[in-house]
Design a protein around this nucleic acid. Structure first.
Length: 915
RNA sequence: GCCCUUGUAGCCCAAUUGGUAGAGGCGCUUGCCUUAGAAGCAAGUUAGUCGGCGUUCGAGUCGCCGCAAGGGUACCA
C-alpha cells in the first residue's frame, strides 16, 4: 500500500475528489435508483405461490453510535448479492433487517451521556438504515424489527414463561462471573482470559441467585442436529467441543473412619485405569468437605478453600501455575480393589463438571501425576505399552517423568482385568461394576446451562413475581408485556441488583395467584435471548396475538443462508438452535434447525497506528499523536520500523493535558471507529460510488478470507465499472431489444458473432455457479473478462449485431446483483424502462452455444508435457491417440521404446507411458 | 497444550471429480494520447506452488511428517 493511499483514507473531506477520477456519473445514478427502489417498494417480500422461497439473513446487528464503516460491507454486501440473485432466479426472497439494541453497549452509552437509551436507539437505527440504503442493500424495510420495542420483547417474556412451564427456566444461586469494575455479572463468553470483555477489569466468582435456561437438556439434540445442516466443519467442530459429550462411569467411593462418613461420587472416562487410583480429589466447593475433614486438617482446609474462592478465573487457570491442594485427613476405599486412598482438595477439580470429584490415577493422567509428585503420593502403574511389559509389569511409576496417557496400551496390575487392551478392559470393567452395583455408565457434557439474568436496566424484564406465600409466580400471559419502566439512574446498584429494584411502582405488585403483596423480579434478560428467535419474528413481524404466524414461519423457515461472523460459533448459534429445537418440540413450528446453511465472512483489516512497546498491539489514536501526518510517518516507519513520537493524553478528571513519548508502529487490525482506522461508506460512495465499493469487497479476496483495506486496489474495480459504462452506453444507440429472435441465425453465418455468443454463454455459466457457491471474487473476474471481450469485439466488428446486444444485455444482468445501481441505469439506457433488474429473469445459458469447437489436446510422455495439438472438440479417443502418436515430437521421444500404456482423458490429454 | 483454517509471481488472488501452473486485479516498465500531469488505451513484466517423504501414468490438488501465519479453546476427569 502506498503512502498516498493511506493519506487519502484519512481525508475526512470528500470534496477533494479530483474531477479526473470521476468518470461515469455514479453519484447521480446511485442517488436516483436508491430513491426509485424505495418509492416503488421493489424489495418488498412476496409470497407468490408459483415460486419457491429463499430466506437469506444477516446476523442481527447492534446499531452502534459509530455508524457503519466499510468493514461492515463484508457481511451485508454478499447477503444482498444472494438475495438479488435468488430473486432473479425466480424465488420469493425474504431478506430482512432489524436491530438487536438491548444490552450493554447502548446502556454504557446511556450512562456516559446520561440519555435514556430508549431515545438513542431509534436515531442509531435510522443512521444504520441510511447507510445500508446508501450501499444499495435491498432489505425489505417493511419488516424492520427492533428488539427493544415492547411488541418484540413481550415475546421474549412469553418464551421465558413457556420454558419456565416446562421446567427449562429455573433460578438457582450460583457462582457467577462478577466484573469488579462494572459491578455486573458476565456470561462465560464475556470473559476473556479472566478479564472482562469490555473493561479488561478483573473477574471474580460471586454467589448470586440467577436465572438459567436448561440448554443442557438439549445437549443430545443439539449434537445430533449438527449432522443435518450445511455449516462450515470448523463451526460444527467448535459446537461439538463446546457441548463436550463424554462417556464414562460414575461410582461411589466410601469414606472411611471420618466424622461424617459417607460416599464420594466420582466420574471417570478412564475406568480402565481404576485400579491405578492412589488418591481422591474433591473440588474446593464440594459439599462433603465440611463433614469429612478431620480436626487436625480443619485449619489448613479452611485456608485453602478461602483462597480458592477469592481467586479469579485468570489466576486459577494461569499458565504454568503449580497444581496445589490440601489433605482432608480422610480416607476412602477404592471399590474395585479395596485399597485405602487419601482424600485431597484441589482447585484443579471443577465444581461444575461431572460430580465435582475425581479418582486420581497419577500414572495415567498428567494433572494427577503432577499433583502426586508435589505431594509425594504413590504412582501405581496399571497401563503399559507393550506385551513384554505385561509379563513383567512395573509396579511403581516413581521413575516416570510424565504420565503415560496413551489410549492404546494394555492393562496390568488390574486383578482379573490385567493383560487386556485398554478399550476392552474399560468395557469389561464398566460392565462388571454395573453388574456388581458398584457403578453406572453415564454420559457427561461440558455444556453448562445458559445464564440469562442480568442485574442491569436495558433488557427485557423477567416476567416472574416473587410471592412470600406462593413462591415464584409467572406473570399471566394476558398481563404481558411487562414493560420496562423509565428510570432516573441507569447505573447498576453495585449490590448485585438492577436499577429496577429502586422503582417501587415496578417492584411492588400483588401476587397473581393469591392477591397478596409480592415483588417483581428485577433481573432483566441477557441480549442473547433477543437474538435467539428473531429469525422467526421476521417471517411475520406484525403479528400481534402471537410471536409469529405459524403459516408464515412454516413457509419461510429454515433460513436458507445465514451470514455472520465466526465469533458467534458457540454463543448465539447454539442458543438460537436450542430455542428452535424447543419450539419444535412444543409443536409451535415445523423446523428444528433454524439455519440450513451458514457462511462466515472474513474480517476487514485496516492499517493502524499502534504502540510498539505493547505486545498486544494496542492501537494509538491518530488524533492523539502530535503533528500526525500519515505520509511522512509511514515513510519513516518503512525506512526503519518503529519510531519515536509524542502523544497527548487527556486527563479525564482534571481536564488537563499532558504529552508523553510513545513508540509508534503500524499493524493491520480490525477496522473500527475507536481505533481511528475506519473508512466510512459515505466517503467511498462519494468518491467512487457504492457499486465500486461493493465490487471491491467482493473481488479483493474470497468471501471467507480476511482482507486488508486498500483504496488503491479499489481503483481496479472502479476502472472496471467505467469500462462497463463505456461499452454499454456505446451500444445503446443501436440496441435492438428483439435480439433474442435473431441472435441464433446471426451467429450461424458470422463466426465473430458465434465466438462472442460462446463467451457470453460461458460467462453466464461461470457467474451463475460462482454466485451460487459464494465465489464472488471469481464471478467479478469472469465479468471483467466478458466485458473486455465485448469491448474488443465491438472495436473489430462494430456494435450493431444481435450477438453484441446479447452480450451487453447479459453483462448487465449478470452484474446487477453485484453492482445494482449501474446495472439498472444501463438497463434503462438500453431502452428497458419501467423495469428493475431485480424483477428480471436471470439469463439462461445454452450449453451448446457455450461449447467450444476445438480443444487443445495435451500430449504427455510419462506425465510430462511434450506437445499440444489442436483437434475438433468432439474428437474421440481413437482419433486423439492416433493424432498424438503421429506427432513428430512424440515419435522422436518414443523412438526405440516400448509403449506400455496410453491414458486418454476426453477433451484434455493423451499420456503415453513408455518403459 | 488441544482443535480449526491457510501457505501459488513484489502484493491480493485463479486453477472441475488429481490432467497445459495463470483467469482477473494492484504495482512496475515502455509506447500512444496530452503543453504537462491525471485519467484512458496498447504492449510488456515476474512464480513452478513453504520444506520433506509417500500414493499415482500424472500431485498446487490426495496421505503422512515437519515449518510458518491466523483464529478458536483451555485443568471437563
Amino acid at each position: 500500500m502506498s503512502s498516498e493511499t493511506i493519506s487519502d483514507n484519512l481525508s475526512s473531506a470528500p470534496n477533494i475528489i479530483e474531477e479526473a477520477t470521476r468518470r461515469y456519473p455514479f453519484q447521480a445514478i446511485e442517488r436516483r435508483w436508491q430513491q426509485q427502489w424505495a418509492e416503488a417498494g421493489v424489495y418488498r417480500t412476496t409470497e407468490n405461490k408459483d415460486r419457491p422461497k429463499y430466506y437469506v439473513l444477516d446476523m442481527f446487528p447492534y446499531p452502534s453510535g459509530s455508524g457503519l464503516h466499510v468493514g461492515h460491507c463484508k457481511n451485508y454486501v454478499p447477503g444482498d448479492v444472494v438475495a438479488r440473485f435468488q430473486h432473479m432466479r425466480g424465488h420469493n426472497v425474504l431478506h430482512p433487517m432489524g436491530w438487536d439494541a438491548f444490552g450493554q453497549p447502548a446502556e454504557q452509552d446511556a450512562i456516559k451521556r446520561n440519555i435514556n437509551p430508549r431515545l438513542v436507539v431509534p436515531l442509531l437505527a435510522k443512521e444504520y438504515k441510511r447507510q445500508m440504503n446508501l450501499l444499495g442493500i435491498g432489505y425489505d424495510w417493511d419488516r424492520e424489527i427492533n428488539s427493544t420495542s415492547p411488541e418484540y420483547y413481550r415475546w421474549n417474556q412469553w418464551a421465558f414463561l413457556r420454558l419456565h412451564e416446562k421446567g427449562l427456566a429455573y433460578r438457582k444461586t450460583a457462582p457467577v462471573n462478577w466484573c469488579v469494575n462494572e459491578s455486573t455479572v458476565l456470561a462465560n463468553e464475556e470473559v476473556n482470559d479472566g478479564t472482562c470483555w469490555r473493561c479488561d477489569g478483573p473477574v471474580v466468582k460471586k454467589d448470586l441467585p440467577q436465572w438459567f435456561f436448561k440448554i443442557t437438556a438439549y445437549a443430545e439434540k443439539l449434537l445430533a442436529g449438527l449432522d443435518r445442516i450445511d455449516w462450515p466443519e470448523g463451526v460444527k467442530t467448535q459446537q461439538r467441543d463446546w457441548i463436550g459429550r463424554s462417556e464414562g462411569v460414575e461410582f461411589d467411593i466410601p469414606v472411611l473412619a471420618s466424622p461424617g462418613a459417607g460416599t464420594i461420587r466420582v466420574f471417570t472416562t478412564r475406568v480402565d485405569t481404576v485400579y491405578g487410583m492412589s488418591f481422591v480429589v474433591l473440588s474446593p466447593e464440594h459439599p462433603l468437605v465440611e463433614s469429612i475433614t478431620t480436626e487436625a486438617q480443619r485449619g489448613e482446609v479452611a485456608v485453602y478453600r478461602e483462597k480458592a474462592a477469592r481467586l479469579s478465573d485468570m489466576d486459577r487457570t494461569a499458565e504454568g501455575r503449580e497444581r496445589t491442594g490440601v489433605f482432608t485427613g480422610a480416607y476412602g476405599t477404592n471399590p474395585v480393589s479395596g485399597h485405602r486412598v487419601p482424600i485431597y482438595l484441589a482447585d484443579y477439580v471443577l465444581t461444575g463438571y461431572g460430580t465435582g470429584a475425581i479418582m486420581a490415577v497419577p500414572a495415567h493422567d498428567a494433572r494427577d501425576f503432577e499433583f502426586a509428585r508435589r505431594y509425594h503420593l504413590p504412582i501405581p502403574v496399571v497401563i503399559v505399552a507393550t506385551e513384554a511389559e505385561v509379563a513383567q509389569p512395573p509396579l511403581d511409576g516413581s521413575g516416570m517423568t510424565e504420565a503415560f496417557t496413551a489410549k492404546d496400551g494394555l492393562t496390568v496390575n488390574s486383578d482379573r482385568f490385567s493383560g487386556l487392551p485398554v478399550k476392552v478392559a474399560g468395557w469389561r470393567i464398566a460392565e462388571w461394576m454395573e453388574s456388581e452395583g458398584i457403578g453406572v455408565r453415564r454420559t457427561n457434557y461440558k455444556l453448562r446451562d445458559w445464564l440469562v439474568s442480568r442485574q442491569r436496566y436495558w433488557g427485557t424484564p423477567i416476567p416472574i413475581i416473587h410471592c412470600p406465600q406462593c413462591g415464584e409466580v409467572p406473570v399471566p400471559l394476558a398481563d404481558l408485556p411487562v414493560v420496562l419502566p423509565d428510570v432516573e439512574n441507569y447505573k447498576p446498584t453495585g449490590d448485585g441488583r438492577s436499577p429496577l429494584a429502586a422503582i417501587a411502582d415496578f417492584v411492588n405488585v400483588s401476587c397473581p395467584r393469591c392477591g397478596g403483596a409480592a415483588q417483581r423480579e428485577t433481573d432483566t434478560m441477557a441480549g442473547s435471548v433477543d437474538s435467539s428467535w428473531y429469525f422467526l419474528r421476521f417471517t411475520s413481524p406484525g403479528s400481534e396475538k402471537e410471536p409469529w404466524d405459524r403459516r408464515a414461519a412454516d413457509y419461510w423457515m429454515p433460513v436458507n443462508r445465514y451470514i455472520g461472523g465466526r465469533e458467534h460459533a458457540v454463543g448465539h448459534l447454539l442458543y438460537a438452535r436450542f430455542f428452535t429445537h424447543f419450539f419444535y418440540d412444543e409443536a409451535l413450528i415445523s423446523t428444528d434447525e433454524p439455519f440450513a446453511s451458514l457462511s462466515n465472512q472474513g474480517m476487514l483489516l485496516a492499517e493502524t497506528t499502534i504502540d510498539a512497546d505493547s505486545a498486544e498491539k494496542h492501537p494509538v489514536k491518530r488524533s492523539e499523536l502530535v503533528g500526525f501526518d500519515f505520509d511522512s510517518w509511514l515513510a519513516r516507519w518503512k525506512s526503519g520500523g518503529a519510531f519515536a513520537a509524542e502523544r497527548v493524553i487527556k486527563d479525564t478528571e482534571t481536564g488537563g493535558e499532558r504529552v508523553e513519548p510513545v513508540s509508534i508502529d503500524f499493524a493491520w487490525l480490525k477496522m473500527s471507529k475507536s481505533k481511528e482506522n475506519a473508512v466510512t461508506p459515505d466517503y467511498i460512495a462519494e468518491k467512487y460510488g457504492s457499486d465500486s465499493l461493493r465490487l471491491y469487497i467482493l473481488f479483493e479476496a474470497p468471501f471467507e478470507d480476511t482482507i486488508q483495506w486498500s483504496e488503491e486496489r479499489m481503483t481496479g474495480v472502479f476502472r472496471f465499472a467505467n469500462r462497463v459504462w463505456d461499452v454499454v452506453t456505446g451500444v445503446a444507440d443501436t440496441y435492438d431489444p428483439s435480439w433474442p429472435d435473431k441472435v441464433g441465425a446471426a451467429a450461424d453465418t458470422d463466426s465473430a458473432q458465434k465466438v462472442l455468443r460462446r463467451r457470453t454463454h460461458q460467462a453466464i455459466i461461470k457467474v451463475t455457479d460462482d454466485i451460487a457457491e459464494f465465489r464472488f471474487n471469481t464471478a467479478v473476474s469472469a465479468l471483467m473478462i466478458h466485458s473486455d471481450a465485448l469491448r474488443k469485439h465491438i472495436l473489430a466488428h462494430g456494435a450493431a449485431s444481435p450477438a453484441v446486444f446479447e452480450a451487453a444485455a447479459t453483462l448487465i444482468k449478470l452484474l446487477s446483483p453485484l453492482a445494482p445501481h449501474i446495472a439498472d441505469e444501463l438497463w434503462e439506457r438500453l431502452g428497458h424502462s419501467g423495469n428493475y433488474l431485480y424483477n428480471a429473469p436471470w439469463p439462461a445459458a445454452d450449453s451448446s452455444v457455450a461449447a467450444p469447437d476445438e480443444i487443445t489436446l495435451i500430449v504427455q510422455i510419462n506425465g510430462k508435457l511434450v506437445d499440444r495439438l489442436t483437434l475438433p472438440a468432439d474428437a474421440d479417443a481413437k482419433t486423439c491417440e492416433l493424432s498424438a502418436l503421429d506427432s513428430p515430437k512424440i515419435k522422436a521421444a518414443t523412438q526405440g521404446k516400448t509403449i506400455r500404456k496410453i491414458i486418454f482423458v476426453p477433451g484434455k490429454l493423451v499420456n503415453v507411458v513408455v518403459g
